[in-house]
Structure formats: structure tokens, C-alpha cells
Amino acid sequence: MKSNFNSEDLSQILVGAFALGVPISFSEEAWRLGENLPNQNLLLLALLSLFFLALYTYESVFQRQVANRIFAFVFRVVAAYLIAALVVALILICLDKLPLLSDPAIALKRIVVITMPASMGAIVVDSFDKE
């Protein structure tokens, strides 16, 4: 099993995030959720995303072998979430649904809402080549 993060891992995370981020980013329901969900719900959504990313990474990517690789484990979870968030932001920019300058709070909220499924797609695709 590979323990270091390389360009193949990056490309898999990008593709996985894109695969699930695109259809949800086109959804007006996701845009509205990003506008209307209270901040505590968005925080819970982000924490749930990180929890499930960590669980899947622990079980599938690292196959429960994290004792001597805590930094690599945490790095992969955080990297998958942040890369997925970046992919979501780029998709929303292309759709003109990311008001970064006019309403940054709504922009961030939309990113958080759509990053949850996108990050799961990212980590699942990242796990495909692990032994």
C-alpha cells in the first residue's frame, strides 16, 4: 500500500470530486441550501464530511494501518476535502453561482454544501488503486 501522496492521488481526487460535484453543482436545490442553511448546520455538514472521509480513508485507503502514519492519514483526509472544495468552487464559478465578491458568505456556504458529496467521490476514486 502506498503511503505517500503523489500526482496520481491528486488526479484521482480531482476526477472523483468532479464526478460527483458537477451534477450537484447544477442543482438549484443545492444553491438554495447554501443560502438558507444556518451556520451551525453548515458546520455540522463540514464535520460530517470530514468524519466520513476519515472513516473511509481509515478502512479502505489505509486499511486500518495508520499507527505509524498519522500525518499521512490526516493529510489525505484534509487534502481530499480541500481539493474537492476547490473543484466545487471552480464548477460554481463556471456556472456563475459563486458570488465570491458580492456575497462571500453565500459562496462559502454553497461550497460547503456541495463539497460533502464531492469529497466522498474524491476519496472513493482515490482508493481504487490501493492494495
Rank of each mutant, 00 (worst) to 15 (best):
L37V: 10
I123C: 01
E28G: 06
V66K: 12
S119Y: 01
I91H: 05
S25N: 10
L45H: 00
A89Y: 11
A54R: 03
L82K: 06
L10C: 13
L53H: 02
L44W: 08
M120T: 01
P99Q: 10
G34T: 05
L48Q: 13
F18G: 06
A122R: 04
Y56H: 07
A30I: 13
I13T: 00
I91K: 04
N6R: 09
K109N: 15
F75C: 03
E29F: 07
A85S: 15
F5V: 04
L95T: 03
L86P: 10
A122H: 04
F18N: 09
A122N: 05
L14K: 06
F26M: 09
V22I: 15
L14V: 14
A84W: 05
S60Y: 07
L37Q: 12
V88T: 05
V22T: 15
E35H: 08
A80T: 14
D9M: 14
K97M: 14
A118W: 00
N4Q: 15
L43G: 03
V87W: 05
D126H: 12
G121Q: 03
L33H: 06
A30C: 13
V74W: 04
I83H: 01
C94E: 05
F62S: 07
G34W: 02
A17N: 02
I70F: 11
R110A: 10
F51E: 00
I93A: 03
D9G: 15
V112H: 08
A46T: 14
S7K: 02
I24M: 09
E59T: 11
A19S: 11
A105Y: 12
P104I: 13
L48F: 14
I106P: 03
A85W: 02
K130M: 15
L37K: 09
F62V: 05
A54M: 07
I91E: 06
P38F: 11
L100D: 09
D126E: 15
L48A: 15
S102F: 10
V66G: 12
P99I: 07
R69V: 02
A80I: 08
